[in-house]
């Protein structure tokens, strides 16, 4: 039977791991390759790297980083952040990334999803959706959560599925960095209404939160960052805990 996945996320800026709260206030969280190796050894099922470098130098550093990670780590990893063209994707996959994640560029020009799928296959195209609740309706935000759109999160999730995306990484901006629990209602609504796997992100703080997002939120995988970086939750303990409460885990 297919296992539920625990995915640590590493936000990377100029070759270092950083972590913010509610999309701001960056803290240094160490060397990404060392962290990646540590997580793989602790039982992480996959890794996600989100590049938040703004400069060209930072982007070049990213490719070197991807190559190093592919060399050191033998579990799948996804790279996202600032990807907007076929050549970006080709470079990253060529350096050893297994999947790429696109966000703002897909919202600006949705056909990019179809083009990437046609060129590289669904299996390596993840669409990241940053969602924020406004008056009871969840809307899509872009550019690292700084720009609002009038697109409803559910409609966008269904659209990207139609266009051939292989997975959705759904981040609740309302919960991100708060450690108050994942957005169960949002994740459930989207997971139940698309036919591709949904990775829930934003708000994980306690073991129970992970349990609830898998059972009540119908998530296929869960992503978290700072609680793993700062060892507030150990991946091994978390997977043991979930396994004991009858959630299928790779132990």
């Amino acid at each position: 039977m297919l296992r539920k996945r625990i995915i640590p996320c590493l936000d990377v800026k100029d070759g270092r791991t950083v972590k913010g709260v509610n999309f701001g206030n960056l803290r240094d969280a160490g060397d990404p390759v060392e962290l990646a190796v540590r997580y793989a050894n602790e039982g992480a099922d996959e890794l996600v790297f989100l590049d938040i470098s703004a400069t060209l130098e930072g982007r070049k550093t990213l490719l070197e980083l991807v190559r190093k990670v592919a060399h050191e780590v033998h579990i799948p990893f996804t790279v996202g952040g600032g990807i907007s063209s076929l050549s970006d994707v080709s470079d990253l996959l060529g350096a050893g990334a297994d999947k790429i994640s696109i966000n703002s560029a897909a919202v600006l020009r949705p056909d990019l999803i179809n083009e990437l799928v046609a060129n590289f296959g669904s299996q390596c195209i993840m669409v990241a959706i940053d969602a924020r609740n406004d008056g009871g309706i969840s809307y899509v935000y872009t550019h690292g959560g700084t720009r609002s759109t009038l697109i409803k999160s559910l409609e966008w999730a269904q659209d990207v599925t139609q266009r051939g995306a292989g997975e959705i990484l759904l981040t609740s901006m309302d919960r991100d960095g708060t450690k108050s629990g994942f957005d169960i209602a949002l994740t459930k609504e989207i997971s139940k209404n698309v036919t591709i796997p949904v990775i829930a992100s934003g708000g994980g703080g306690k073991h129970e939160h992970f349990h609830d997002i898998f059972t009540l939120g119908c998530a296929d995988a869960v992503l978290a960052a700072s609680i793993f970086h700062f060892k507030e939750i150990e991946i091994k303990d978390l997977k043991q805990y979930l396994s004991l409460s009858d959630i299928l885990m790779r132990l």
């Binding site: 039977m1 297919l2 296992r3 539920k4 996945r5 099922d45 996959e46 669904s122 299996q123 292989g166 997975e167 036919t195 591709i196 796997p197 296929d220 995988a221 790779r250």
Partner: peptide, 10 residues
């Protein structure tokens, strides 16, 4: 089923 089948299976 969710398709693709993504993840670890025994």
């Amino acid at each position: 089923l969710k398709v693709p089948h993504v993840g670890w299976n025994n």
